[in-house]
Write a protein that binds this DNA or RNA. Structure first.
Lengths: 138, 138
DNA sequence: TATATACAGTTTCCGATTAAACAATTGCTC
DNA sequence: GAGCAATTGTTTAATCGGAAACTGTATATA
């Protein structure tokens, strides 16, 4: 049983890859979580907070405050669910929609560059491996 | 040019995978950054702050404060570099060494479980793909 | 229907992160 | 070698994140 080095640990590799990519997006003016939140809402509007938190792997208090800020900026809005008044359904505003469009462009461009450098087939395979990994770890 | 869904974006997949794994380790009593820091120091002791920040993709002020806390807990210690007095070299203490040993065990066990579920060959391939991805994106 | 229990979000309090300014040391250039 | 720029790391002030407590609503049970 040999000692494994840091680079052989999945947790480290994922942390590194995530941070570098996320930093580069921040430098492009894209906050990863805000973007992911808007993108989820554009794909399935009206999600309650709990589902959103699941989809983005954020915990609820963190999400509440992220949403507070985005409501301040008029990017999203809350609608209380009439059939269950504990629930709050979230929607993307018009401003959010156009903000999302411009950020989508930056993300797409940046990822295209990264994936080109890495090799497009490999990037594709990496993504599908991550997707099944996530399904399995959740 | 079709619109890509969130699950087809590398940035999202990496964020999800990283968060789930990191959460699970936290639940096992392992703080990912502390563990990574101790592990780097055990592999190459005496690194200056700047190198450490690079190795872990932390920015320097964050690292300074992480180290402050870990010095408080006597896990690591600072040694000013005599040949360049701007530099601070970091070392793992005895307490840090034994703490690292116990956390290594928990991380190894947890990752072994995760990798078994995912399939060991695939996990191996995922890791080497991530490794080359990181080299390329930095 | 009254009470208890579970559920969905928010708030609070404290710890952690960030960007910007700062201090100390070294290296360069004239 | 004097003055200026670059480097290494820390500090400060403001923002953000997380665990636990709390509010309000729905559901189950008697």
């Amino acid at each position: 049983m040999v000692e494994r080095s840091l680079n052989e640990h999945l947790s480290h590799l994922l942390a590194q890859a995530n941070r570098h990519l996320s930093r580069q997006l921040t430098a492009e003016g894209v906050s990863l979580d805000q973007w992911r939140l808007m993108k989820v809402l554009s794909e399935s509007g009206g999600l309650p907070m709990g589902k959103l938190a699941e989809e983005l792997a954020l915990n609820l208090p963190t999400l509440t405050k992220l949403v507070d800020r985005m409501v301040q900026d008029a990017l999203v809005y809350r609608v209380p669910d009439p059939s269950d008044r504990r629930k709050v359904r979230m929607f993307l505003s018009d401003k959010g929609t156009s903000m999302l469009a411009s950020q989508n462009k930056r993300v797409e461009e940046h990822e295209a560059k990264v994936e080109d450098n890495y090799g497009n087939e490999d990037a594709q395979r990496l993504k599908s491996m991550l997707e099944s990994f996530i399904k399995q770890i959740v």
